[in-house]
């Protein structure tokens, strides 16, 4: 209970911090006039997007790790980030003036990547992982080709998006929060089966899990969540890889704890990273993906050392 209390307290503190800091400080509990406009129209949506996207990425990471039986798996391991990036740049090339072009392109690209991976899903975890890694290399090559062809004025937008951009999400905040809640609920419903899958596919099957069905459900769920996250915020690495491990170290390996802790912890990490990214060299912003690693890596390594 103490650990959950600490996690929720840290989340509340980070939420308040995210609302309070920016180009100017404010008390989020007593904002009036211009401050209230900034708070409600700018900071609150951004804080909520960071929380929801971080949580979704961490959930997808936890699922992919179990699905592929590989602790190095993360939401982009099967090439979805590459295909989404290629889609986003394609959108930018076709409709350079449109505010929605990159998001739409990313969403379409993410699903093209997912469908490509699905073709290999029946081959089992290790071959699917291999196919995903090869597809990721393919999408990277396509992305490099598109970037070489992209007019110079589009390059900055493309790179900013590829390093993670929470400054303007084209996915409405309520949709992201609803997706966070639905994803967590679905995950919790599957949690006992996921625990059994930690023992390996044969043990899980022998313990009554319909492994084929579970793998299909997990793949769709994790892929949909990844596609939504990429569409909302570009590609943000590290959160999906490390947060589930961090939460296993703190809360143990059972998914009834790992999933909610990851959904909260991922949100917390991205929120903290984004708050730092937009304030540390204000009015300029750092790419949030860089900050997630700079904050998360030392925390993770320290915990790893302490737990032996």
């Amino acid at each position: 209970m103490l650990r959950w209390g600490a996690l929720l307290l840290a989340l509340a503190a980070c939420l308040l911090l995210g609302l309070a800091v920016g180009q100017q400080w404010m008390n989020p509990l007593d904002a009036t006039g211009q401050d209230a406009v900034i708070l409600w129209q700018l900071r609150l949506p951004r804080v909520l997007v960071a929380f929801a996207v971080g949580g979704l990425l961490a959930l997808a990471g936890a699922w992919f790790q179990v699905l592929l039986g590989n602790p190095l798996a993360e939401p982009y391991v099967l090439g979805v980030a590459g295909s989404a990036s290629a889609g986003a740049v394609t959108g930018l090339m076709i409709l350079p003036e449109s505010a929605w072009a990159m998001s739409l392109g990313a969403f379409a690209g993410a699903w093209i990547g997912i469908i490509a991976v699905m073709l290999f899903s029946r081959l089992g975890a290790s071959r699917m992982l291999l196919a995903g890694v090869v597809l990721a290399a393919f999408w990277s090559a396509i992305l490099a080709l598109l970037l070489a062809l992209l007019p110079e004025q589009g390059l900055f937008r493309a790179f900013a998006w590829m390093m993670g951009d929470l400054s303007h999400s084209d996915v409405p905040v309520p949709v992201l929060l609803l997706a966070w809640a639905i994803a967590l609920s679905c995950g919790l419903m599957l949690s006992r089966s996921l625990d059994k899958l930690l023992l390996g596919e044969r043990h899980a099957e022998a313990l009554g899990v319909n492994v084929k069905q579970l793998r299909t459900r997990l793949l769709w769920l994790a892929s949909a969540v990844t596609a939504l996250s990429v569409t909302a915020a570009g590609t943000i690495g590290f959160v999906g890889l490390v947060v589930p491990h961090l939460m296993r170290l703190i809360f143990g390996s059972l998914h009834k704890a790992v999933l909610p802790a990851s959904a909260i912890g991922g949100g917390l990490l991205l929120l903290l990273a984004d708050t730092t990214a937009r304030t540390i060299i204000a009015p300029a912003e750092l790419p949030v993906g860089v900050l997630t690693a700079i904050i998360g890596v030392p925390v993770f390594l320290l915990l790893l050392l302490r737990r032996g």
């Binding site: 039986g69 602790p71 930690l198 023992l199 390996g200 043990h203 296993r248 170290l249 390996s253």
Partner: peptide
């Protein structure tokens, strides 16, 4: 059957 994997810290 085979010993289960240990990667996830059960």
């Amino acid at each position: 059957g085979e010993l289960p994997p240990t990667e996830f810290g059960l």
